[in-house]
């Protein structure tokens, strides 16, 4: 459905997107996973035709979006990370405006607004002004505004940032429902769990490049023999990292807040060595957690840093 080929974007001397290529199949939820500054936003802006690339091509249904943006724009829905709505208008007025811009009017528009309100769970609150909504309600309306024209491709840009767990859960359910109805979705996030839960295929981006891509299983395969051991300590200092890295069998180590994450083969044996080293150095352990390989581990393995860094 969408093919990104050798895409570059420079802002002055800064290369925000560095030769990325990927393909999004019709009917899938495609994840773009990466930390802040990875180049996700720039990539989305180029796909949305807001920004021209420095180099590269994007094909939508086999046609260059830079030569004919109209076809894509009519079939594209975008959910920006910021709530792109008019706060002093009601939810209904917002949906009507965006629906009008996509050519909907009259009874069709009214019907579609009711359908969308049902999908986003706001059918009882559309008469209220948006600035009276909670953060979660605003985000749901933000999604609703992108659904009015029934897009074939929906780009959702970190739609769950900063909202309560209940709204987050509602949004994730909505994404799955929309996908089940046949909508293709590109979902960007830096929440590894969301990507794991929603996406059939994932591209992991860092510093403008795609460092890995594939299904979740394919990605985890990269670190399948590695065990991640998270040790929560009373006090953490940078020099601890070196101490842990010196333990035989530890491939990598990273600190995130008050937790040290260690990666190595043969978790049981490794755990004994780690505990021994901790005792030797008089570090005080609060908790130890052994995890199966996941995308966080993949990212850490590939970049040497945590996703949320």
């Amino acid at each position: 459905m969408l093919k990104v080929e050798n895409l570059y974007k420079n802002f002055g001397n800064i290369r925000a997107v560095d030769g990325i290529s990927f393909e999004v199949e019709r009917g899938e939820v495609f994840g773009l996973l990466g930390p802040n500054g990875a180049g996700k936003s720039t990539t989305i802006s180029i796909i949305s035709t807001l920004l021209p690339p420095t180099k590269g091509e994007i094909l939508f249904e086999g046609e260059s979006i830079f030569k004919n943006s109209k076809n894509l724009r009519q079939k594209l829905g975008i959910v920006p990370q910021d709530v792109a709505l008019y706060p002093t208008l009601t939810g209904y007025e917002n949906l009507r405006f965006w629906g009008n811009l996509y050519g909907l009017k009259g009874a069709d528009l009214k019907k579609r607004i009711n359908e969308v309100a049902e999908i986003i769970g706001l059918n009882g609150r559309l008469k209220d002004k948006v600035d009276k909504y909670s953060g979660g309600m605003k985000r749901r309306l933000n999604i609703g505004a992108a659904l009015l024209h029934e897009p074939e491709l929906l780009i959702m840009d970190e739609p769950t940032v900063g909202i309560d767990p209940q709204s987050r859960s509602h949004i994730l359910d909505t994404v799955l429902k929309l996908n089940a109805q046949g909508m293709t979705i590109i979902y960007t996030t830096h929440y590894m769990e969301e990507a794991e839960e929603l996406c059939s295929r994932i591209c992991i981006m860092d510093e403008g490049k795609i460092i890995a891509s594939g299904t979740k299983q394919e990605l985890v395969e990269l670190v399948k023999e590695k065990t991640q051991i998270n040790i929560k300590l009373d006090n953490i200092s940078d020099n601890m990292l070196q101490v842990f890295k010196e333990i035989p069998g530890v491939f990598d180590a990273a600190i995130h807040e008050d937790t040290v994450s260690l990666f190595g083969e043969n978790g049981d044996m490794l755990l004994a060595d780690i505990v021994s080293k901790v005792s030797e150095k008089n570090f005080k352990i609060q908790s130890i957690d052994i995890q199966k390989p996941n995308l966080e581990a993949v990212f850490l393995h590939l970049t040497g840093k945590a996703l949320r860094d």
Partner: peptide, 10 residues
Amino acid sequence: NQTYQRMVIA
């Protein structure tokens, strides 16, 4: 507030 970008995409 990103509505401009949303209009361009529309």
